[in-house]
């Protein structure tokens, strides 16, 4: 069972090919925020180097965000149109899950924190369970202060990962019982996407391309402004 995994919700463009849950190869490009330029060539490079024909794919997996709106749309649109053309199912996995999953061997609460711009972060909390992590909060957007307050209220030992945790390291890392995972644990993992998507595929938990939607968590400025003015 061959799966193509695409993750573009952060400044990193990440693509992986996996067979039966094991990564055959992956390409990650950082920092440029050039998702639309880099994604398709990265997929092509990976397939060419691994000598894999796209017809052999069983499913396309994609990170759903939350994260950079434009990056998300590039990833989800690319994945959808590929699945549509190949007539194969899709598996969408929230990006915050992909940050938490590699940290499943801890005994602490894992908190994925992604930079949401405008001095806010997207975040979710997870409890380690056998074979993975189980989400124990909603997917949320809020200020680092709000997140700090939530962590203090929980009063659990917590491990924070993601680019949002790094960006607000001074504030979040100073909290009691909170530790920050290093930069290596920050980017959402395409390998985790391969693993999680494969498990879901085997349980037949997949979607039609039209049913896979980005997780924005925040409306457009125009809509927020509209409501603020109470019109």
């Amino acid at each position: 069972m061959l799966v193509l995994a695409i993750e573009t919700a952060t400044p990193r463009v990440s693509v992986a090919l996996g067979r039966n849950g094991a990564v055959l190869g992956d390409v990650s490009l950082d920092g440029g925020r050039r998702h639309a330029e880099q994604l398709v060539p990265a997929i092509k490079y990976l397939c060419d180097e691994l000598d894999i024909d796209l017809d052999q794919l069983a499913a396309v997996a994609v990170g759903l965000g939350p994260g950079l709106f434009t990056g998300l749309r590039v990833g989800v649109t690319t994945a959808r149109l590929m699945a549509q053309a190949l007539r194969i199912p899709m598996i969408g996995v929230p990006t915050l899950d992909l940050i938490a999953y590699p940290l499943r061997h801890t005994s602490r609460t894992v908190v994925s924190v992604v930079d949401a711009r405008r001095k806010e972060v997207f975040f979710a909390c997870y409890q380690p369970v056998p074979g993975g992590v189980q989400r124990s909060s909603e997917y949320e957007v809020g200020t680092p202060d709000g997140l700090a307050g939530e962590l203090e209220a929980r009063g659990e030992d917590a491990l924070l990962a993601g680019d949002g945790a790094l960006l607000y390291a001074a504030q979040l890392g100073a909290l009691d019982r909170v530790e920050l995972a290093g930069p290596g644990a920050a980017p959402p993992s395409a390998a985790a996407l391969v693993e999680l998507a494969t498990a879901r595929y085997e349980r037949e938990e997949f979607s039609l391309p039209a049913d896979v939607h980005p997780l924005y968590l925040r409306r457009s400025d125009a809509e927020i402004e509209w409501d603020r003015k109470g019109r």
């Binding site: 092509k44 709106f69 434009t70 649109t77 690319t78």
Partner: peptide, 19 residues
């Protein structure tokens, strides 16, 4: 519009690659 253009471009490139 930058974000709007990228949707069409991504869709077209995904199809071109796949086909």
């Amino acid at each position: 519009l930058a974000g709007a253009l990228l949707v069409g471009v991504s869709a077209a490139k995904a199809l071109a690659l796949t086909l």
